[in-house]
Design a protein around this nucleic acid. Sequence first.
DNA 1: TACATTTATGATAATCTTGTGACAAGCATT
DNA 2: AATGCTTGTCACAAGATTATCATAAATGTA
Lengths: 223, 223
Amino acid sequence: MYKILIADDEQKIREVLREYAEFEGHRVVEAVDGMQAVELAKQEEFDIIILDVMMPRLDGFSACKEIRKLKQTPVLMLSARGEEYDKLFGFEIGADDYVVKPFSPKEVLARINAIIKRNKQVDAPADIVCFEGLEINFTSRDVKIDGVKANLTPKEYDLLFYLVRNKNIALSRNKLLEEVWGYDFFGDDRTIDTHIKMLRNNLGPYRKYIVTLRGMGYKFEAD
Amino acid sequence: MYKILIADDEQKIREVLREYAEFEGHRVVEAVDGMQAVELAKQEEFDIIILDVMMPRLDGFSACKEIRKLKQTPVLMLSARGEEYDKLFGFEIGADDYVVKPFSPKEVLARINAIIKRNKQVDAPADIVCFEGLEINFTSRDVKIDGVKANLTPKEYDLLFYLVRNKNIALSRNKLLEEVWGYDFFGDDRTIDTHIKMLRNNLGPYRKYIVTLRGMGYKFEAD
DNA sequence: TACATTTATGATAATCTTGTGACAAGCATT
DNA sequence: AATGCTTGTCACAAGATTATCATAAATGTA
């Protein structure tokens, strides 16, 4: 049983996909636009998210980007035939697959199953990382210090996750700004220092893993 | 650059895919039937294998199964439109994606890139150079002397890194100033001497690699 | 060997960087 | 509107780094 989020403004499409998905025993949640999809994706854990490209309020691409900031839930995009440029863009944006309308529901379900299977397999072993008593769970997005859940802010999670994903790699402030804050952030370099400070405070004894590289940036150092 | 195996009995299809793939800088190997594809897949390592479903001697599904017994190389299947049953079967058999003929080569390439990127999630090896007990890690930005971490200042790192990257090349003070200090540095030549001194002190027994070129500059000399 | 050059070294003051606390703006919730 | 939480910016002190200079040592040459 998979939990599936279907976001499309056309009720008919939602209905037909829901029918097929429920026939296979999956649970379906519906969203009528991109905004709602992002909201739901934030709140709950889905096995896959299906996004229509053309939606009111927030389009599928933007919704996908937004969701990818927080979760690695697989995304399948739906769009009208012939938008080849969009198709390519869809892959670059981090979508896992792409289906063209009008589609066969069977095909969509087959792709859903394939994507989820792939994701479950690939991500399962690398899900949680530990460094002594510091436990980082990328999927559920939490961090435990000696078994106790740390209360990190979103930025702190993002920063820690990026550092850990790139452990033992020297990361300049610019690189961090670009990767964690986004290429469109035009703020101060030193903002990072403050967030590093707060992150260190929250990591307690494991603050030692975050190493300052003077004149350069920071690094998460561990084997 | 990816290494791609294309298996299809139609020469035209192989040609058009090869053309697009090579345009993107990939290397292509062709097979005209399933048997040949399996043979090649056994012998060489590919980043992705593209299999047509309908092929003489051994069909794409059987070839995929055969290949999957030995390797986890991602597989993309090609097949004539409307073979929906085949499509489902294709995913279950372990194919990573499925494209229906007639396809757009661009779409196929986009899918190829997406699949490979997904599978290539292994992190690149660190950039490390050793000279006897002197270990220089460019990626994590640290230097070890007989296994013990050296504590270099930023300038010392930069200077050492530049020297090592240009080992066995005579580097004038001007060149060093320009490359390590920057074109906008208007200080004294002799500043370098001081930094070379400190660097040598920090390198312990391996100070010998930094050679003075009288009347010229310095050089990192090693094989 | 003696001399002229060039490089190595030690000391030091000026300069840069970072860690930190304070604070205000932004945002969602109440 | 009030509250609480998160974020980005700033200023300042502590400390590390750097450039410079004077002097010693080394090198090459006549």
